[in-house]
């Protein structure tokens, strides 16, 4: 998936290999596995959101503060962040290339990292410090 400059010679050479078969297979597989895990966590997310929507902080601490709910929820956010970055990469690869692609990909990584870190830190705060 690293950018490859495709020249006339590359196209003419029948032995040319396009893309990185290991990284691309891993990308495909990661997307399927993280997607499946997201579905497995559906009940947990639905429970948390339905139970706590519009509730006060005390209720949020009582439910998410329970490590059996909070820690899996934090894990889910990490998996979701990976799935997001992977999926956005597919989109970016379709519409951008070269330096523009690299720039957007960096922004993508930063956004997903921010979502994961803010989410996990917030949950850990609720779990360990109330």
């Amino acid at each position: 998936m690293r950018e490859q400059i495709i020249t006339r010679d590359v196209v003419a050479n029948p032995k040319s290999v396009y893309g990185d078969k290991r990284a691309s297979t891993r990308h495909f597989f990661t997307q399927r596995v993280t997607g499946a895990i997201n579905i497995a966590f559906l009940a947990l997310l639905l429970f948390v959101v339905v139970r706590l929507a519009g509730q006060d902080r005390v209720d949020m601490v009582a439910v998410i503060g329970n490590a059996w709910i909070g820690l899996p929820l934090a894990l889910l956010l990490v998996i979701v962040a990976i799935h997001m970055r992977n999926g956005m990469r597919d989109t970016l690869e379709d519409y951008f290339h070269g330096r523009t692609y690299s720039l957007y990909m960096m922004l993508n990584t930063m956004f997903c990292l921010a979502v994961g870190v803010v989410g996990v830190v917030s949950i850990l705060k609720l779990v360990f410090w109330g």
Binding site: D56, R57, M60, V61, I64, L77, V80, A81, M84, G87, M88, T91, F111, V115, V118, G119, V121, S122, I123, K125, L126
Partner: peptide
């Protein structure tokens, strides 16, 4: 919907962060 979900995670994370922050 993938792109919408991508942006929409802000809704979930902002909610959790607000709860961690204070009432």
């Amino acid at each position: 919907t993938g792109i919408a979900n991508y942006v929409g995670t802000i809704l979930l994370v902002a909610w959790l962060a607000a709860a961690a922050w204070g009432q």
